[in-house]
Design a binder for these strands. Structure first.
Lengths: 84, 84
DNA sequence: TTAAGTTATACGTGATCCCGTATAAATAGC
DNA sequence: GCTATTTATACGGGATCACGTATAACTTAA
């Protein structure tokens, strides 16, 4: 379940928002860790397609997440994991 | 092994470059699939931190890859997989 | 319901996007 | 070695970034 697939910008934003909340951080608190304005974090989580890659990577590392690239699965891995 | 971890922009670019070559595409060919200039694909693969997220997502889907977010592993998953 | 906290949105500014186009540099095939 | 292909880099231009700052809208808790 800990693997979350992001097939578009909005899904990625949603994942980041969940992770931030789980970490008990506000947008402002997360932003200050990585020198991003609260408003920038807001745009990132909203799934703006034009945010810069550096912004995404900064948020990921601040939240202690990593980004994995793999071939697309027909049935999502999340679904498969739910079998167990 | 098919899972590739990208902890920074350069690693992500390298992953994308490998995937493109494996698909037998030139930067120009990939770009025309997703309406990106060859020069933009070049910047993406070079690991420019300021490329836009939409550019990354477009390349991923054109290469039939998906993006997974998960908690950081101390020892990389790649290393662990090598045990089996 | 009210106040406090959080998130969304706005303005001006300098930087950088990707665009189209073009060319130089590097790589591959012959 | 030479040629063709591919990749890296450059220019001007319009759009949009993230910045600092500020405020509006929404949420949460008392």
């Amino acid at each position: 379940m800990t693997d979350q697939i992001a097939r578009n910008e909005k899904q990625l934003g949603a994942i980041l928002r969940r992770a931030r909340k789980q970490a008990g951080l506000t947008q402002g608190a997360l932003g200050s860790h990585i020198h991003l304005r609260q408003g920038t974090v807001s745009r990132l989580e909203a799934g703006e397609p034009a945010v810069q890659l550096r912004t995404v990577m900064a948020a990921l590392s601040a939240l202690d997440l990593e980004l994995v690239i793999r071939p697309r699965s027909k049935a999502s891995e999340a679904d498969i994991e739910d079998l167990f």
